[in-house]
């Protein structure tokens, strides 16, 4: 069973429906006990880092996710969920996050003269510098759907599995470490390519990874 973590950070219907669409048994859970019964964890998120981290702590998901990473339970983190995998975010005057992947989260910053729109919202292509089981069947430069104002900056290039450019600025679109995988984009809203990642996740064997 796949548990979709509900920690008050946005509505999860679209994520649940996407798994339903590919025939996977995914349920929304709002407490750590139910989540522990799952063999795969989806960690979505829309909203701000501060409320996200607070919501995780209140429900015991903070510990659950750290344990999942240590036990090699497959974790798919999406958007804000992906950002919270890192050590800290500069959103909301600085927030300590899960520190499952070394690195930090920063606000897009462009000179006013460039007139670049933030949030970065819409379809964008992703380059794949490394192979990964969850990216099987995904070609170079396929497009995915993004909505975000902050981006993750892993300390080590080995934790960058996908790179996108926004107004000539390159940022980490996919991260991964061990059994934890995160996308800045929304696979549940990214057409067939997004569904392929979800499908790959449902069968991902993490026993031999890391």
């Amino acid at each position: 069973m796949i548990a979709i973590l509900d920690y008050g950070a946005g509505n999860l219907t679209s994520v649940r429906l996407a798994f339903e669409r590919i025939g996977a048994n995914a349920i929304i859970v709002d407490n750590a006990d139910d989540a522990r019964a799952a063999d795969r964890i989806v960690f979505p998120g829309v909203g701000s880092a501060r409320s996200g981290v607070d919501g995780l702590a209140q429900r015991g998901f903070h510990t659950l996710l750290k344990d999942a990473a240590a036990r090699r339970t497959p974790v798919l983190a999406i958007c804000l969920g992906m950002q919270m995998l890192f050590a800290s975010s500069e959103e909301d005057d600085g927030v300590q996050c899960l520190d499952i992947i070394p690195g930090s989260v920063k606000l897009f910053h462009f000179p006013a003269s460039q007139r670049v729109k933030v949030p970065h919202m819409g379809w964008n292509t992703v380059a794949l510098p490394q192979q990964h089981p969850l990216l099987a069947g995904i070609g170079q430069h396929e497009a995915f759907y993004f909505v975000h104002s902050y981006y993750a900056k892993p300390d080590s290039p080995e934790h960058t599995l996908g790179i996108s450019d926004y107004a000539d600025f390159s940022f980490c679109a996919i991260t991964g470490r061990g059994s934890v995988f995160g996308t800045q984009f929304h696979p549940e809203r990214s057409g067939d390519a997004g569904l392929r990642i979800l499908q790959n996740f449902t069968t991902w064997d993490t026993t031999s990874c890391c």
Binding site: N11, E20, R21, S190
Partner: peptide
């Protein structure tokens, strides 16, 4: 929603926070 794999924007009669919550 169950068959749509791309973003979906809903409009018409949205006038309270509860309407937005219901749509999401």
């Amino acid at each position: 929603s169950a068959v749509v794999t791309v973003p979906l924007t809903v409009g018409g009669g949205i006038r309270r926070l509860q309407d937005i919550d219901d749509a999401l």
